[in-house]
Design a protein around this nucleic acid. Sequence first.
DNA 1: AAAACCCCCAACCGCGCAGCT
DNA 2: GAGCTGCGCGGTTGGGGGTTT
Length: 282
Amino acid sequence: MGRSPCCSKEGLNRGAWTAQEDKILLEYINVHGHGKWNRLPQRAGLKRCGKSCRLRWLNYLRPDIKRGNISPDEQELIIRLHKLLGNRWSLIAGRLPGRTDNEVKNYWNTNLCKKVKEGNFRSIRTEKNTQKTKPQCPSLSSSPNESKLDSFVIRPKASKCSKLLSVDTLPLSSMQLNSMSMAEIEAQPEPLLVDDAANNSTGVYDDGVLSFPNVEKELSKDLLLDFDIGEIFLPDLLNSGFSDICDFSYNNNNHEDLLPFSNQHLVSSLENLHDKDTEMLM
DNA sequence: AAAACCCCCAACCGCGCAGCT
DNA sequence: GAGCTGCGCGGTTGGGGGTTT
């Protein structure tokens, strides 16, 4: 069938953006907001396609972008999240305030992948754990001879989530999980769906922010949903049971022992948190 | 000094999903 | 349900700056 191009290529600028183009785009977005990217260039008077404008805004012009100097904590988090999620750059970037998926992806491909592949990256927190097996780089392990299971990466269906999980069910470490029988795991309570709670809660605006008091009450014990993402997330995450969950080896062949329950929940939570973050930015 | 090589990263491309008609 | 549009994602490319020979 084929898909029509997103825009006519004729007469459009390509390549690096000029300061003038940046200025025009910024001014337009400051006045009109972003969205409707396909119509934006025409309205703003830019000779660029909508996709290009969107990318420029998301990866470069957005005011909350943090550029350069990826900290050791961020490095470690990227590695751990990549171990868990694979090349889900947007999800990984969603856990790194101010970082874009493009930046995380580039950073991984140019720095961390090599380090991880060579085994050069020593975890800040696990320096003392000397028995780590050498990790592999899932994104590059494309050799047909390699078992796909060698890079144990959860790849949940990439779809938008409208429900939020209560993390009550999450703080099970891999050690806890590994010591549980499947029956015990299946007996774990169903996660709370925030949609359900929201249905029973009236939204109120406070200083222009929509909130659901009942829901927040329910979730106030939920550490992952209650933190200040920018300041608290990294240390919290690195010091939480999350690290334990991630501390499985790429080379672990006993994949049946890696309980999908915990990781699937974790991934769902990350995706949901990502959605929540996105909503908060809107 | 200049050519060759390497590396980084901004930008592009194609595809898939969601929502609307 | 089909078709279309808008948007987001992940893989890839190529320009330009830095380093080596």
